[in-house]
Structures are given as C-alpha cells and as structure tokens.
Write a protein that binds this DNA or RNA. Structure first.
Length: 261
DNA sequence: ATGCCTTATTTCATAAGA
C-alpha cells in the first residue's frame, strides 16, 4: 500500500476555477480530492479534463449553488449521494457524496451556512449536521477506515477565527454548532488540524473583501474528520495557502493530508 | 468586514456566501 494523499477544496464554482483546479491537480498530485461548491449541474461538471488527468469522479450537483464531488485515481467504489434522512431547505440539496477509494471511505461535505442564528437556515444547518452524524454512525461499523472532509462552515474553537470578538452573535462559532462537531468526534473521529501554510493560524478561508487574505483575517472551517484507523496513518496535513494567492482564486484554500502506507 | 468581492442567473439587479 502506497502513501495516499487526500485533499479537500471548496472551489467556489468549478467552472470559474477549472484552469486552477487542473493546475492544482497536476502540481499537488492528490490521489483523492474532495470538492465543494461546484455551482454547476452534474452534466456541466468538467468530466473530460478531470478524466484526462487520471481521475474518476463521483459528482452530486444540482446547478446554481452547492454541489460536491470526490475525485479519485485509486479507485471509486460504493458511491453514495446525500445523507440518510437528509433534511432540506425545503428540499434536500447536493451537499454530500461518499465513495470508497483505495480502501478508505471518503465523504465530501458542504455544510449549510446558517446565515444568522435566528434564520431558518441555521436550524437547517444543525439538522443537517445531525443527519451527517447519524449517517456516519450507521456507516462506521462497516467502514472503520473513514474520513469526512469538506467545508463544515463551523470554526471548532475561538483559535480558529482571526478575532473572536468580531464573531459574537454570528454563525460558525455558536455553542450549538460546536456541539454538533463534538458529536461527530464522539463517533470516534479526530479533527486532523493542518499545519498553517504561513503564519500562526491554519486558516482555510478568507473573505474576498477588504484585503482579508493579506491581513490574515481568516477562519479554519474546512475540516478533516478521520476515524482512528485513518488518523493513525496521517503523516502530514497542511493548508495549501499558495492556492489562495494570485488572480482568480477561490476564497478557500485546499487542505492536503498524507496517509502513510 | 456587515459588503470594501465573487459567483450564477430569472443579468444593467438579485441572492448567496461566512
């Protein structure tokens, strides 16, 4: 069994990001790549150029918003779209897709934003996280080597936002959201915290506005939750901050995790 | 920060993002 490199990246439109995505696949050489916020229909996903780089793709996408994928060049089996008893807003959205890749159960997730704590979208977010917990709980006995990666839209601790005072009363930092993450960890999952790309914080998201990236006004909301069997194999994990730079970036940076043989 | 971007679409305006 060779080293396996698994990555997650909220691309904020796979169409707008296609040249960067293809360059990134070639330069970073992930064996498995979880993508979020495709913002295309399944038909419009760039299957051909991704295939040309050696990847199979499990895509769950429905058009204007959302959309997730698992790309793999080490096998793509048992593809599962969505969650068990998945809640909707009001209809279920395309926010989760799973596949077994080289013996590891991999799930790409895009957790609802929540908007504000008094918005119906926030209740939906908590329901969605609970459905994720139930789905994983049902699956883990069959798949002890599991990892769920993606844009969780929750900063696990105050250290995961640049200025906690700015987030008082906001989503992404509330006790209920953090409790939902703790409930996932209670399934036996470990938060694989990446090395920062630069500076003291392993942030993965910076707003496009106000020069937030250059001021490091960021958040760690793209997370890797690994079962014990996967966490024990982690040899490195880092934020690919370089991929947030330059012209036409996503507002998220990839997180890249290497698993030892 | 409170839209100081960026995206897609029902496009010269809106909804959404976090």
């Amino acid at each position: 069994m060779a080293r396996v490199r698994i990555a997650t990246w909220n691309v904020n439109s796979v169409s707008a990001r296609l040249p960067r995505l293809l360059d990134w696949l070639e330069s970073r050489q992930p064996d498995v790549a979880c993508l979020q916020e495709l913002k295309v229909s399944e038909d419009a996903f760039p299957h051909l150029p991704v295939q040309a780089l050696g990847y199979q793709a499990a895509v769950h996408a429905d058009g204007r918003w959302n959309g997730v994928a698992v790309l793999s060049r080490i096998g793509l089996d048992e593809v599962s779209r969505g969650l068990d008893a998945e809640p909707g807003f009001p209809e279920p959205e395309t926010r989760a897709v799973a596949a077994t890749c080289g013996g590891v159960r991999v799930r790409s997730v895009y957790v609802p934003n929540g908007r504000t704590p008094d918005d119906p979208h926030y209740a939906y977010k908590l329901q969605w996280l609970e459905a994720l917990r139930r789905t994983l709980g049902a699956e883990l006995p069959r798949h002890p080597a599991s990892v769920v990666l993606g844009d969780f839209n929750v900063a696990p601790t105050d250290a995961d936002v640049w200025d906690p005072a700015k987030f008082v009363g906001s989503t992404h930092v509330t006790d209920a959201e953090r409790a939902a993450l703790a409930a996932l960890r209670d399934l036996g999952l470990t938060d694989v915290i990446p090395r920062p790309g630069k500076g003291p914080h392993p942030f993965t998201y910076w707003d496009y506005r106000a020069g937030a990236f250059h001021q490091d006004w960021g958040m760690r909301i793209d997370l890797v939750y690994a079962s014990a069997a996967v966490a024990a194999r982690v040899s490195d994990a880092w934020v690919d901050r370089e991929s947030r730079k330059g012209k036409g970036p996503s507002d998220h940076a990839p997180v890249i995790v290497d698993l030892a043989p």
